[in-house]
């Protein structure tokens, strides 16, 4: 089993998509939202994802493929 803390950023119409629900349904992941701010044109959700490591990997790749941005919760750590 694995666990990851991630931040999803939704832009434009993606705000209306049930991405987190589908992550649970299709990848058998338990999602636990800790903080969020969702507006008309931009939204973000900080959450913890629990499940099989491979499924977390596949699930987050699928989220990225929808156009939702997936980032570590600490922001970018690769610095100049």
């Amino acid at each position: 089993m694995g666990r990851q803390r991630v931040k999803f950023t939704f832009d434009g119409d993606l705000v209306k998509e049930p991405i987190i629900y589908m992550l649970g349904r299709d990848f058998h992941l338990v999602t636990n939202i800790r903080r969020a701010d969702v507006g008309d044109a931009l939204g973000w959700v900080v959450l913890e994802v629990d499940g099989e490591k491979e499924e977390i990997e596949r699930g987050l790749q699928w989220v990225s493929s929808t156009g939702v941005r997936v980032d570590p919760i600490s922001g970018d750590v690769l610095q100049g």
């Binding site: 950023t9 980032d71 970018d76 610095q79």
Partner: peptide, 17 residues
């Protein structure tokens, strides 16, 4: 809103600050 960096100023290139 995070961005994908594409800048000559690489030391400032943090897309998700």
């Amino acid at each position: 809103r995070p961005v994908r960096p594409d800048s000559i100023a690489k030391s400032l290139a943090i897309g998700n600050p």
